[in-house]
């Protein structure tokens, strides 16, 4: 089963579920802000527009409503998130 992650105007298939969502996005060459990568700084925060994520580590950082911390979650279904993807990538 492949899960589709849509960020900005760019979509990709999330096949490897050993990765965090943050790693999966970075794997596409898209930069996301981060510091701790352990759920305590809140800097990787992204807005979730559609779908649901599952946390493999309970984050300590404050998460505003409708936001996710991609460094400590994975996705089990198709999701849409807000983010900035470099123009040259928004072609899929």
């Amino acid at each position: 089963m492949s899960i589709i992650v849509k960020i900005d105007n760019y979509s990709f298939m999330c096949a490897d579920d050993s990765m965090s969502l943050l790693e999966a996005i970075e794997d596409q060459g898209i930069d996301v802000e981060y510091q701790c990568r352990q759920g305590f700084c809140g800097l990787c925060r992204l807005k979730l527009v559609e779908g649901k994520v599952t946390y493999f580590d309970e984050p300590i950082a404050f998460i505003p409503e409708n936001y996710i911390l991609p460094c400590c979650c994975k996705t089990k279904e198709d999701i849409v998130i807000e983010g900035t993807v470099p123009k040259e990538k928004t072609s899929v």
Partner: peptide
């Protein structure tokens, strides 16, 4: 030090929220 500060800013964000 930055690791600590990341935790502190999380603390004050929680308190403020």
């Amino acid at each position: 030090i930055a690791r600590d500060e990341a935790l502190h800013l999380t603390g004050t964000q929680h308190i403020l929220n």
